[in-house]
Simulated assay, not measured.
Amino acid sequence: MPDVQNLSPLIFEPIYKEKIWGGQGLRLKLGKNIPQNRPVGESWELSGLSGNESVVMRGPLSGKKLSEVFNAGQNINGKNAAFPLLYKFIDANRDLSIQVHPGYNNTLKSPVSGDSKTECWYIIDAKPGTRVICGLKKGVKLQDVNDACETGNLPDLCNYIPISSGDVVFVPAGVIHGTFANTLLYEVQQSSDAIFRMFDWNRVDDNGQLRPLHAKEAMNALDMTYHEYHVIEPVKMGDIGAYHTIRVACRYFAVEEYRCAGPTSLKLPARKTFQVITILTGSICFSGENQAASFVKGETVFVPVSAHEYGINAEANTQLLLSYTPELVSDIISPL
């Protein structure tokens, strides 16, 4: 293992996932090297999940697993014991199932520890008129949901939200949700792949079989609270040569956006945790410690704590997302 005091930003091999609802959008819109003519729905950019662990793509650590790098010390991970997040690009070529993630106890009416999965979506591309499901309609009761799962009428109870490119949707654990066709998004979530599928549009897989549903488990995990604040408005930050906004912040993750109209020099904030940068358009170059590394559209970069002093040079028309596990007061509230 190279000296972790001077470890440079790293890029990992994407893990491509074929899905019944996938397509070719990751290749056509992000330049991903996915198999052609296959329904690829997800590109896992950074994952510490067992059996789906990211591997360093290039450089002196090429071939190392994320856990090997991450556990090398606090100069890499800050104070995180294990990699706490999962990063994905998702291409919804067809409608996804209506589902819920664990992390909420309906009986206790409160979040629970364990295999929790709170997530957010940055909408990269969506056709006009596209909607997502987030939550249930006002006044819907748990028994209504149970009955609808049995009759196949669950879509009638769901809350539909119009979306556009550039929107951010926040989906806490326990909130019923679904994504529709012609949507390309970037997802930041807690490190979990747990899904309780509630409705799947009565479609069959390649073997002619219906995919399993998990209505009983979903009933116990559903957060029935109604609200209208799933699409998060951006919060403008100070002038740093780029249009800089906070897009979402919670105790698990924060996501900031930088839009650079012209060539721009940026400096990462000094934080006590790792940071992750994903380039949506354009390209960037890191420079520091007599090293330089360039990254382009569609790539996700892991920035260890030891590399926060690196400078970033972004070409014109670059758009990037920066995320991290925040200290909410010092990282989010105080700068405002």
Rank of each mutant, 00 (worst) to 15 (best):
E18W: 14
I332W: 02
L10Q: 10
T318D: 03
A314P: 10
S192L: 05
N159W: 02
K297T: 07
V255Q: 00
V56Y: 06
L86S: 01
T264G: 04
C285W: 09
A82S: 13
I277E: 06
D200P: 05
T107F: 04
R131T: 14
S287C: 06
V171E: 00
G262W: 03
A126Q: 02
Q24I: 14
E217K: 15
K272Y: 10
P335V: 00
V40E: 01
G31I: 05
H227D: 12
T183F: 05
K29A: 12
N317Y: 12
F180L: 10
R211N: 05
L321T: 05
V112S: 03
D206C: 11
I20Q: 11
L210Q: 08
M198I: 10
P212L: 00
V171N: 01
P212R: 00
N93C: 12
R94K: 14
Q319D: 13
A194S: 11
P84T: 13
F295R: 07
N106M: 03
K141L: 14
K141T: 15
L10N: 07
E327Q: 13
L328R: 00
S323R: 04
R259K: 08
I332V: 11
N75T: 08
P269C: 05
E257P: 08
D193G: 02
G262F: 07
V169R: 04
M237Y: 15
I195V: 13
E42P: 08
N207Y: 15
P269G: 07
Y310L: 02
S330K: 08
G152V: 06
Y243E: 06
E256W: 09
C134L: 08
A307V: 08
K127G: 12
N77Y: 02
V305P: 02
F89M: 09
I76A: 07
Y226W: 13
K138D: 09
G174K: 10
S116F: 13
V175N: 07
S323Y: 11
L142E: 09
L85T: 03
K17R: 14
A173N: 04
E256M: 09
I176R: 01
D239A: 11
V169T: 03
M237A: 12
G59M: 08
A261D: 01
I332D: 03
K137E: 13
S265A: 15
D147Y: 12
D95G: 05
R271M: 11
P326G: 05
N153Y: 11
L86M: 08
L96P: 14
G298R: 03
G25Q: 08
E315T: 14
V305Q: 04
G174N: 06
A72M: 11
K32R: 13
I76P: 14
T107S: 11
Y229P: 00
R38I: 10
A292V: 03
P326Y: 11
K32E: 15
C120L: 06
L322S: 00
T273H: 02
E309V: 11
E13S: 03
K267L: 08
G241Y: 06
D223R: 06
N6A: 15
K138F: 04
S43I: 10
A254E: 13
D95K: 04
L46K: 06
